[in-house]
Write a protein that binds this DNA or RNA. Sequence first.
DNA 1: GTGAAAGCGCTAACAC
DNA 2: GTGTTAGCGCTTTCAC
Lengths: 338, 338
Amino acid sequence: MGKKVTIRDIAKRANVSVTTVSQVLNGKGNRFSKSTCDKVFKLRDEMQYVPDFHARSLIMQGSVSTIGVLIPDLSEPFFGTFVEGVQKVAREQNVIPLVFSANRDPKLEKEYLQQMVSRAIDGLIIASARMTTDTIKQALGNLDIPFILFDRNNAQEGTRVQTDDFHGGQIAAQHLIDLGHKKMVYLSVDKDTENFQHRLSGFEKVLKDNGINFDESTDVLYSELSREGGEAAAKDVVASGATAVFCGNDDMAIGLLKGLRELDVRVPEDISVIGYDDISLDEYVYPRLTTVHQPIYDLGVGATEILLDRLNDKDVDEKVEKFPVHLVERESTARPAK
Amino acid sequence: MGKKVTIRDIAKRANVSVTTVSQVLNGKGNRFSKSTCDKVFKLRDEMQYVPDFHARSLIMQGSVSTIGVLIPDLSEPFFGTFVEGVQKVAREQNVIPLVFSANRDPKLEKEYLQQMVSRAIDGLIIASARMTTDTIKQALGNLDIPFILFDRNNAQEGTRVQTDDFHGGQIAAQHLIDLGHKKMVYLSVDKDTENFQHRLSGFEKVLKDNGINFDESTDVLYSELSREGGEAAAKDVVASGATAVFCGNDDMAIGLLKGLRELDVRVPEDISVIGYDDISLDEYVYPRLTTVHQPIYDLGVGATEILLDRLNDKDVDEKVEKFPVHLVERESTARPAK
DNA sequence: GTGAAAGCGCTAACAC
DNA sequence: GTGTTAGCGCTTTCAC
């Protein structure tokens, strides 16, 4: 017991050659007699044969079947949802996704990347702020494994899926202006990650266009990109004197909600809060969070579809696919108090 | 470009044999001259050689290095956190975790299981209510791949990690009783999943011991095990006339909080709510959720440690490791109104 | 209809 | 110090 059943074992028991077994089991058994086929199939079930993936893929290097997914942190629902999108497409197209969460550790990211390469993955989806296209290409060696970049990535090249962050920033600003706010701040993360920068640009542009003062040196607040970070920023937000704050993402916004509550600042009566992402939690915090919706699940779906397309036709050009964002108005924003 | 670099290519360029390259690269090169070693290392870097995992593991079937993790849904932070725990230990012990999220689809679960087997994983961690030990053993064929069961599992056998659900139920009941509640209901999922049943038993026992009426046919409310499910149950909860409700898990509790708010029922003034799990969100909902803490991350750590122990010494007995639970008192519970 | 043999990339005895 | 050789489990060409 416990010994792995091989195609040889089956062959022996069936009194046929390994070739026969292999062919029959792979549906290429037209040329064999029905009785032989039946015998082999029966034996496979009986002996619970499972083909050895390693041996198999050692030979059939070509057959698309595994993609790697590298993300920062699985305990964040944001990435979990993204991965679910990936898995959906993978499932449909019969490819196996290998998911690694690298905990934002560059060393680990590289290690996992190598792992995936050595496991002969056919393509990659990478979500990591830290990794540059160069780092990735280097880790990939001179193999030309196609990869798709996602979110928080400074990359200027490479195929990738994105949402329109600039427009997202605009949407947030317009909403706040429509409500009548005159003094707003942007709460973001202290890294010049491209997409947060874009959001700021869009936000700032609309403010300026509407003749509202916005000074990056004082009206952008920085904190950690997490609920804890948002919570910690509460007193800075209050100190800023703003009547509305645009948060870099929903996690920060949700943290901020808590922080403000503890300072006895009412949302949205005293301060309006608008987030970014539209994670499922937004519906369940109090007050329900107004936010800019990003189609996270769809991004997972889209990234995977693009990747799989490229795998099937290697010569598809590098491209950037942008997904639309939109406002989801809930209860954390309102007209400022007079 | 694009062609995979093999150990042979290196050997050729270095004018040595494949053995030499293999040995040197695997740190077993004491017996080779320094110059040879240097040459090989240099070439490896230059040519960006990455060993082929498949070829390698085809031979070294024994060397522990990959474990499979099968969970229901990655977008649930509960499981995400669990997996992070797994990854931590895996990282430390240099094993690679393959994570699959099967979306609660039994067919998919089986498929992924087979995938993992064919990828020659050395051990498994399975979190799935649906899978019985038999199903698993069957999917595993006659291989004796060690596996650890986790959460929501009806299994009566097999090594597994658990928390003390019975005690958790007792804790919840005691807390509510201490606050002075006399009429309580249990909101759970309509599946007789063992651990929810245990929680109920513990809850009920303490109530009865305190001379409080509890009738399973009327005082147990059922709904979906999700935030949506909790929300939907709000009116039933109100209709029950209870002053406190014990929820099967935090997701339900958080949904319930929202549902009650929409019904203009105040928590905890009108109704107290206590959850189960202690997911990180609890701090951020309003009111902050009182709950029974399960060490989710630690469970991931524990499960992995046990698995790895078994892998290193196959003869460890099947065992059940229980992790302690405790009350986390926040703001969603209070004395009932007079 | 069926099987023998080669070989995927690698490691590990065992020679020399 | 270094190379030869066999073989992991599988697929595939080609011969019978």
